[in-house]
Amino acid sequence: MGAIYRREMGAFFTSGLAYVFLSVFYLLSGIFFCSGVVAVGTTNTANLFGSMFIIVLFLIPILTMRLLSEEKKNRTDQGLLTAPIGLWDIVLGKYFAALTLFIIAESIVFVYAVILGILGGSVVWSTLLGNYFAMLFLGAAFIAVGLFISSLTENQMTSAVVSMLALFVLYLMDNLAANTGNEFIIKIVMSLSFYTRYIEFTKGVFDLPSVLFFVSAAFIFNFLTVRVLDKKRWG
């Protein structure tokens, strides 16, 4: 796992993808920070984190798109799958590399917090940390989804577009369910809704079941990715 993790981290930076990802992330979150927090004159970061859901939704597919699809396309998966390591090592190595980059990206909020401090605002650190972890868990789940979709195709663009669509559907899920007007469906969808659970966090509620929800989602999608790799062998 360590070898693959290190290679992926290296690849993120040598390919330039990391720089693109980080700069776009910083730019967009910076814009939200300026317009939603600084310009309004508040120290409430809930709005900022609320908007960041959208950024994460569009940027995580960029992060995960090539992780497995490129291996398949260049036939480098043959090197990995014939090495004396398990499938989980491969999947988790890649997963944690993407997660690390995501953590680097979202840690920008601490810079924003410092800026707020300099501007004379008082930052509520507990809320900020709560939000920070909420976003971490959200990213952890989304990256697993993206990695899973990347394992299904050989084409990076397909992987990226399908991942964005999938995450977008996850985002719109509650709205769609609400439109049906069916109590039962709404209840089920709400309990599975990434967005609702995330927004709860941004209001400063640290909800353990939601943490478990995101972690389980991440586990399930990583498990599915392992199954995809395994199935390929038996196909």
């Binding site: 040598t14 043959q78 090197g79 014939t82």
Partner: peptide, 13 residues
């Protein structure tokens, strides 16, 4: 030790 038909090389390394 396996050398597949297409060597599994990461060209960016």
């Amino acid at each position: 030790g396996y050398l597949p038909e297409i060597p599994p090389l990461y060209v960016d390394m």
